[in-house]
Amino acid sequence: MGALLASRRARIAAVAVVIALMAWGVASAVGSCSSTAAAARPTSADFVSHQTPDWADLHEEDGRMVYTVDGHVASTAGIDVSEHQGEIDWHAVAGDGIEFAIIRLGWRGAAEGEVREDACYARNLAGAREAGLDVGVYFFSQAIDEEEARAEADFVIEHLKGRELDYPVVYDHEPVEGVEGRADDLSVEQMTANAKAFCDRIDEAGYPAMIYGNAAGLARYSLADLPGYGIWFAEYGATIPSRLGRFSIWQYTDEGEVAGIGRTVDLNIRFPES
């Protein structure tokens, strides 16, 4: 009887060891996946371009700009939208070859300075993500100082509610046509300080940050003092961008037509990482 009990105890101990090893293996696998996911989370540096693309590889196909490397498409097609586009059929958008969307999360009034959420932000974000698009957001700023810029960043972070993003949170500060804006006459130093305050706060929250503008808009910054943040450049009607400096996304028209969107929309191309 004693030998039988000893044998049973040995078998139980062996089973316990096997179970423990299996549990350790599962935990290790989960830990490994979590670590990989964390490493894959985009950063501000992922959207900083360090060299000018070879413009000979940029061309138009069916009304959209495409960048090729060794004869293969290496660019990514995208749009940016706000409440002005109305209701969007995001599955139709995805079916029309669009791969990413940068969605307006909110804006500050140019005259009165009130901060508001875009009326279609939550619906657009959910719809684009559900249709399989990579997503980012932008905020239309009219900050007059660093305190307001940080408040705008906090507004964005609060409304993201911890959601993951594939593309950056973009700082868009520009004059509004026909409106005498509260931030129209800021100095280059103040504009730069505001952009840095916004982007730093976004970056600290774990999201990539980026700066948007056309040639005139970007000239309002000292970009040399913002080296850690990518540039989203806007220029329409050009076959090749006139800007020679660093930028990784080009908004090349505001008159694009995309399935699932009943109005014209901005079209963008993201160049391959250099």
Rank of each mutant, 00 (worst) to 15 (best):
M1C: 15
M1W: 14
S7E: 14
R11P: 02
A13Q: 11
I19N: 13
A20Q: 08
A23G: 14
A23T: 12
G31A: 15
S32T: 14
S35P: 14
A37C: 10
A38K: 15
A39C: 07
A39Y: 13
D46N: 06
D46T: 10
S49I: 03
Q51I: 11
T52H: 08
D54Y: 08
W55Q: 00
D57F: 06
H59K: 09
E61F: 03
R64M: 09
M65R: 14
Y67N: 01
D70K: 13
H72C: 11
I79Y: 00
E83H: 15
E87I: 07
G95P: 11
D96V: 07
E99N: 13
A101T: 07
L105E: 04
G106R: 06
R108A: 08
R108P: 01
G113T: 05
E114Y: 08
R116A: 13
D118A: 10
Y121P: 12
R123V: 08
N124D: 09
L125C: 06
A128W: 02
V135W: 08
V137E: 00
Y138P: 03
I144L: 13
E148S: 05
E148K: 07
A149I: 06
E152V: 07
I157W: 00
K161V: 00
G162Q: 07
L165P: 05
D166N: 07
V169I: 08
V169E: 04
V169W: 04
P175M: 12
G181M: 01
R182D: 05
D185E: 14
D200T: 07
I202A: 11
I211K: 13
Y212R: 10
G213H: 05
D225L: 09
G228Q: 03
G230W: 09
W232S: 06
Y236H: 01
A238Y: 00
A238N: 08
A238P: 00
L244S: 15
W250P: 00
W250H: 03
Q251M: 06
Y252A: 00
A259K: 12
G260T: 11
G260Q: 09
G262I: 11
E273N: 09
S274Y: 13
